[in-house]
Design a protein around this nucleic acid. Structure first.
Length: 103
DNA sequence: AAGGTGACTAACA
DNA sequence: ATGTTAGCCACCT
């Protein structure tokens, strides 16, 4: 049985390019609180960040919560824009259009 | 080893 | 409609 951390990564890796998922949705899959999911992603190593599309995980309102982490929020916004999403001031323009749901 | 911390969310007034 | 409150629990030092 993998660590919780690895379990979350395995789900995040399933998110298709150009789609987004809320922390709460991932939390439901791994049976944990949304805060825990966010915190785990915040504690990722660089190696893990290269492996996992963490930038596709945002909060329920379509905001990039990591914007308050400083430079990382900007990076996330740019990466999402590169995948075709419209983002303004760390907010996804039309989130409903991009939500991805796990099975 | 133990405790503080935090990328959230839903419910209530 | 908006603002506030409380629950959440694994990671990092």
């Amino acid at each position: 049985m993998p660590d919780k951390k690895a379990l979350i990564y395995s789900y995040v890796k399933k998110i298709p390019k150009g789609k987004i998922v809320a922390y709460g949705d991932v939390a439901a899959m791994v049976d944990m609180s949304p805060r825990t999911v966010g915190f785990i992603l915040s504690g990722m190593n660089e190696n893990e960040m290269g492996d996992v599309p963490w930038h596709r995980v945002v909060n329920r309102q379509g905001f990039i919560s990591s914007s308050k982490l400083g430079p990382k929020g900007i990076l996330q916004q740019q990466m999402l824009e590169a995948e075709g999403l419209e983002i303004k001031d760390f907010q996804i323009i039309n989130p409903a259009k991009f939500w991805f749901r796990f099975n």
